[in-house]
Structures are given as structure tokens and as C-alpha cells.
């Protein structure tokens, strides 16, 4: 059965630069996905709760403030606490490549840095769904 892919696009932390998050939200919509956009200043707790209630396949987070090493892993930790193991978690924003390894070890499946074509993200989601 063809199931519509649902994605939570979230802005964790305090940074207000949501250009990238909105562009990706729109690109995912145009790729036929349903996008739940959370708006700014989301705590990891809020993101995980929204992901659970909305039963999304993917959590896509964007951070430009440098707080990624703190906030991204908090989200995957909370998912694990709730025994949610079938949600794909990806991230984007201004994130030094040196941090990719650490974030991957924390369950962030991929990091999409500045300049990533939206088509790359769309394709990654389609091929890496966990359910």
C-alpha cells in the first residue's frame, strides 16, 4: 500500500533562522510528503512529543546556532526512552563536518550542510525510511 510519508520539520533551540527549515518543508511538500512544521524555539521534549502524536516517519531538524551537539542527541535520547525506534532522524544547518561523526553515533542518520540540494534530502528520506 502506498503510504504518505509524514515528516516533522523542527527548529530546536533558540535560533530564529528558519529559511532553510521552511525551504525544506516546502520541498518535501512538493515531493508529495505531509510536513508538520513546529515553528521556532522547540525543546527536544516538544519535538519528540509532536513526533509521537503525529506518528511521523521522519524528524528533520535545523540548527544554525551551534547548539546541535547538545540538542540533536537529546532528541534521539528521548525517542529511545519512549522506545520509538522506527523514526528516521536527520539534521541540517551550520554544522561543522567534524561533528558529523559524533552526531551519527548519536542516531542522527544524516546531516545536510549548507548548499545541499533539497532533492538530495528528499531522496535520502525516501530510501532510508525505517518503516
Amino acid at each position: 500500500m502506498e503510504r504518505t510519508i509524514r515528516v516533522l520539520v523542527a527548529k530546536p533551540g533558540l535560533d530564529g533562522h528558519d529559511r532553510g527549515a521552511k525551504v525544506i518543508a516546502r520541498a518535501l511538500r512538493d515531493a508529495g510528503m505531509e510536513v508538520v512544521y513546529t515553528g521556532l524555539r522547540q525543546t527536544p521534549e516538544q519535538i519528540v512529543q509532536a513526533a509521537v502524536q503525529e506518528d511521523v516517519d521522519v524528524i528533520a531538524m535545523s540548527i544554525l546556532s551551534g547548539a546541535h551537539n547538545h540538542l540533536f542527541p537529546r532528541v534521539t535520547e528521548l525517542l529511545a526512552e519512549k522506545k520509538v525506534d522506527d523514526v528516521l532522524v536527520i539534521g541540517g544547518g551550520v554544522i561543522p563536518e567534524g561533528d558529523y561523526e559524533f552526531l551519527k553515533s548519536k542516531g542522527i542518520a544524516a546531516i545536510f550542510g549548507p548548499g545541499t540540494p533539497t532533492a538530495t534530502t528528499v531522496e535520502f528520506i525516501r530510501t532510508h525510511l525505517k518503516r
Partner: peptide, 11 residues
């Protein structure tokens, strides 16, 4: 403040 976690001194 709880919302400041991870953001202090970053930008």
C-alpha cells in the same frame, strides 16, 4: 534558564 541549555555563548 532551561531553554538556554546548549545555547549559552554559542553565537
Amino acid at each position: 534558564h532551561p531553554l538556554s541549555a546548549g545555547e549559552v555563548g554559542k553565537v
